[in-house]
Design a protein around this nucleic acid. Sequence first.
DNA 1: GGTATTACGCAACAGCGTTGCTATTCTAGA
DNA 2: TCTAGAATAGCAACGCTGTTGCGTAATACC
Lengths: 366, 366
Amino acid sequence: MEKAADLDYLRDYNDALVVAIARRSGVFDRATIAAGTGLTPQAVSKVVARLLAAGLVEPDGVRRTGVGKPTTVYRLIPTSRYAIGAHVARRTLRLVLTDLVGEVLRTIVTPLPEDFTPQHLLDALAEGVTTLADGCRAGRLVGVGIGMVGPLDHAEGVVRDAHRLRHWHDVPLRDLATERLGMPVLLDKDVTAGVTAEAWRRGTTFRDAVLIMVESGIGSGLWLGGSAYRGAHTNAGEFGHMVVQLDGPRCVCGRRGCLEIVHDQARARGDVDAAARVLAVGVVNLLQAIDVDHVVLAGADLLPHADAYLGAALAAVRAEVPRVDWLTTEVTTSSLGTDVIAAGAAMEVLNEEYGPLTSPRTAAHA
Amino acid sequence: MEKAADLDYLRDYNDALVVAIARRSGVFDRATIAAGTGLTPQAVSKVVARLLAAGLVEPDGVRRTGVGKPTTVYRLIPTSRYAIGAHVARRTLRLVLTDLVGEVLRTIVTPLPEDFTPQHLLDALAEGVTTLADGCRAGRLVGVGIGMVGPLDHAEGVVRDAHRLRHWHDVPLRDLATERLGMPVLLDKDVTAGVTAEAWRRGTTFRDAVLIMVESGIGSGLWLGGSAYRGAHTNAGEFGHMVVQLDGPRCVCGRRGCLEIVHDQARARGDVDAAARVLAVGVVNLLQAIDVDHVVLAGADLLPHADAYLGAALAAVRAEVPRVDWLTTEVTTSSLGTDVIAAGAAMEVLNEEYGPLTSPRTAAHA
DNA sequence: GGTATTACGCAACAGCGTTGCTATTCTAGA
DNA sequence: TCTAGAATAGCAACGCTGTTGCGTAATACC
């Protein structure tokens, strides 16, 4: 059963709203927030006072606009909070330290042994986190996010059957890592982390988006209506296993003509353009199905050929979606490159703590 | 910029939460609500008092569970509120009157002239609404919902370019109908209305679902994370225009190998089973992409062959989605048959007024 | 009939945003 | 240089939310 809302929820909701605006615009003032949110200036003063007390914002001078007392301008302090993100790939662990606005401050890449075990990962994780946490002032590190390949259960924090990883069946990685690291940990699919990175950095106008990731498999991370969408079983985003060619070649998943197998065969024969065109068909399919207005391309197997993929996707979107002025979709490559998953895992932690509230949370938060 | 939350929002949120529970369970008591929502029993008493005053619930006797004062049981009054829904199809206008729990009480089907104009529709709508409203006690009729083929703009209430309807370009139907009918009107895509019908009747456990509709075109209505998902431009659900056969037959939309054209060709040659199998491939594609756990089949061109479509979809879901215990998906046909769109349009009105609140609303409501 | 137990509401309370008003601090003009 | 006007900011009281403390009512059990 859903939880009810109380005054704490009300306060946190509005605080998070102001943080979101501050994050987007950098500097802000009381009157603008009041006009935009519908709060009274007095209420905004109270919110700002709380954010000042939390150390999240600081005064940033005054602005003289003419007659009258000048406006006090505030700004978000990017280094007031940090988060660490981990991207668990098949052979490497990539760790990043980010600040509150989603800038990547440091990156550590550690090799992982073939068929690494949970213990291997926890050891590598602990060492890397210790190194990265060293640069943060006490109390400013919010937590650690882990992005990895599914299937997994985001709500429970359990890796169910990580694809092509032998020792990863029903591993309660979130709780194991929480205990080992001594700080809050989140676990999510790599693609969902990725799209969260884009969303956190782009702000509240980035409401409906998909991140397409080509990297030992093809997946998609969904950001729908202003928050990550994971599906009923944390299994959304198996974009590569949508059939685009009935009776096509047999895929590893057992079906025929999956986007992934058709794409991979084109890549195997060296035809990047054909591969890109297949992916573009999939992108347009997704636009038809869920109508996002931002498509972000990412992944280690895509970025080296970013131009080809971007070009094919743009051409397909322009040609095949009805071209009317109200139906526009932006297609880009990720602004974070190969760090996008790790950075996104970090930003999931920030989003949990300081992002827009959707529904009342069960657990209390700072 | 998003709106802030105030005490009205807090109250309405909790009131709606209790209504949702009452709707789902029929009868309820104070202690159960308190335990489920996290509210104190005293707070629940206040909520129930408000709902009693609004005439939405009434005492329904007492329940003796052993020692102590018996529990007062309350029940939702289904006929305390009504809504009217309209399904604008290409040749007919179907109107239904529903009660608060989503029961269809009356249905009216009116023929529409070929290439009907907005004026034609408004006339037919006004006449039908007058007839249906006759049976409702004053003040209990919440409003009218209109479901029709897109593209349209749900937020603005404007029909942009209704597919295969000549006189329907940039028609502000919602406002025209609001003025003509003198009561609140909502406008939405037919498929979105349809999935709302299922969601309203199934309650809060129905969180991630898709309704597939085969009826002069193939579309899908999405219900994601507990609310309707319409996409960035109210254009989600163009399920029929996902490519399932690269270089397949040319579709009316200009692309090749769309699900719709492949499906329709199979139907045209009388091979319902093949058509059903194609649709089933699309259903599994959608499951891969967005991972819903409820699939509802509907539409005038599907229901006469419901067994074939349902069988094919079930077989495909069972065979092609990895069969593990945590990944279950329910596939059914709509419980409302041909009324599903009209009924859903009505329930969108109910959902707007009495459904779970997502974010603070700009406009005040009762 | 007494007692433990459960349900439920009145009353006081903390905390939210709101309202009314005052103080502060600037520009513009006398 | 001084005064008037204007815009910002904050204090204090307020209405409303859910919460807490406690008294009262209604039942089963002994």
